[in-house]
């Protein structure tokens, strides 16, 4: 809104404005320094990707190999498998996680009985605080064929005749990751949407009620459109993590049987990079991920702007 005023001011307005907002600028300096130190200076380490790095020697004594590490990467058949798995699991997690969190936020928001509302919210976000090391064992136990609760329930409902070895079916692995992610993060994810919902002007609802809108219509026509900016901003930010898709979860739930579907970039960097002391190769993989993530974030941002949403940048 204030863009219209700033367009009209004189050239030296930058300094005027700076002076005006001196306090704010000063306060943001420490954060800027923090970002430079921890996010920009380490980028210098990317030179490793163009060397054949060997520990114990300084960076300048290493042999330079040009783009060999990237060539190795793109010639590696495992790479394409890893790319597929990472994208698939990220998208499953993103879509299922977002939909489930929004749904939970909407439902919790409609509950009028406070003690139940509080209890439901607490119970749903508690798993977030369990580390994956513990959570993975819970998932393993629940899915076990030897007295696991999921198989027991399915058996007693006569839906299946034989216990299913869920963790041993390669094609199911992505979905187990998705569902266990939802179980663990749904409540935590809902908090931010609940906060956004709390900020909606109550008079909108009152007007809707007068116009004869029921609960569902209120959700559809008022709540959802009001939190649309929050949803799109979170989606744009999450785009940057599409090529990350976690590490512990896959690492702890995988087994030899499903490795073709379980290996994601972080595990690949570990198995084919750090464990073999191929630090340069691992760096090259990291660069590839960063560049693709950046492209994805920009693309999502443009996309959101085109559809009339406020972007991040």
């Amino acid at each position: 809104m204030n863009t219209s005023t700033s367009l009209a001011v004189k050239p030296n307005s930058f300094w005027q404005k700076l002076k005006q907002q001196k306090a704010l600028v000063l306060m943001s300096v420490p954060f800027l320094i923090h970002v430079i130190i921890f996010k920009y200076i380490p980028i210098w380490g990317w030179v490793l990707a163009f060397q054949n790095y060997w520990p114990g020697k300084s960076v300048f004594q290493q042999t330079w190999v040009g783009l060999d590490n990237f060539r190795d990467l793109f010639n590696d058949p495992v790479f394409y498998q890893v790319l597929r798995n990472t994208l698939a699991m990220s998208i499953i997690k993103l879509v299922m996680g977002t939909v489930a969190s929004i749904a939970l936020a909407l439902i919790i928001n409609e509950v009028r009985f406070m003690p139940f509302k509080k209890a439901a919210q607490t119970i749903s976000y508690l798993p977030h605080f369990i580390s994956w090391v513990v959570a993975a064992n819970l998932v393993r136990d629940a899915l076990s064929t030897d007295g696991g609760i999921v198989n027991d329930v399915l058996l007693s409902l006569n839906i299946i005749k034989e216990p299913i070895m869920f963790l041993g079916i390669p094609k199911l692995f992505w979905w187990i990751i998705g569902i266990s992610h939802v179980w663990k993060e749904v409540g935590w994810g809902a908090i931010i949407y609940l906060a956004a919902i709390a900020g909606i002007d109550p008079s909108l609802y009152e007007a809707a009620v007068i116009d004869g809108a029921g609960r569902l219509k209120q959700m559809w026509y008022i709540t959802l459109p009001s939190i649309r900016p929050t949803i799109s901003i979170l989606l744009i930010m999450n785009m940057g993590y599409l090529l990350s898709s976690g590490f512990e979860q896959q690492y702890l739930l995988q087994n030899g049987r499903v490795i073709d579907y379980a290996r994601v970039f972080t595990i690949y960097e570990l198995d084919y990079g750090i464990k073999m002391m191929r630090y340069s190769f691992a760096t090259a993989v990291g660069i590839f991920r960063s560049v693709v993530s950046l492209v994805l974030v920009f693309a999502a941002n443009q996309f959101a702007k085109r559809f009339g949403q406020e972007g991040l940048m």
Partner: peptide
Amino acid sequence: VDKETFVMN
């Protein structure tokens, strides 16, 4: 052979 043998830790 135990059904779980390949997924147990």
